[in-house]
């Protein structure tokens, strides 16, 4: 543990506080935006964009993914692919369905 490392960390502390502030503000924003009378599609898009942005702030800084090792990026990329598969393929199967469309 060198001094440079300690110095490094104290620099990070400032970014933690900034991220916290951003998360708090975005929480207010998402609640405020939800009070508008959007269509469902637009409301989903806006809410998910804000949530994704918040989530990536947490992952990048609190979970320090910005400076993480390559193996972890690979792992998360793989997981992300299967996550997308898991979300969209059952949905696709339901929408492309013979018979009564409303009952999946």
């Amino acid at each position: 543990m060198s001094d440079s490392h300690t110095h490094d960390v104290s620099k990070h502390v400032r970014s933690y506080v900034l991220v916290f502030a951003a998360l708090a503000v975005l929480t207010i924003v998402t609640v405020w935006v939800a009070s508008f009378e959007f269509t469902v599609g637009a409301a989903v898009a806006v809410a998910l964009i804000i949530a994704t942005f918040k989530g990536s702030l947490v992952a990048s800084f609190f979970m320090h993914l910005v400076s993480e090792k390559k193996a972890i990026y690979w792992l998360l990329a793989l997981t992300a692919i299967f996550f997308v598969v898991l979300i969209f393929l059952p949905l696709g199967a339901m929408l492309d369905h013979q018979g009564t469309p409303n009952v999946p």
């Binding site: 998402t30 939800a34 469902v40 409301a43 989903v44 998910l48 804000i50 949530a51 947490v58």
Partner: peptide, 18 residues
């Protein structure tokens, strides 16, 4: 712990706001 927070960040709009 951050992951648990992250899940909530998605749960909150999905369940409460949409």
């Amino acid at each position: 712990w951050h992951f648990v927070d992250l899940v909530w960040i998605f749960l909150f709009p999905v369940l409460y706001l949409l």
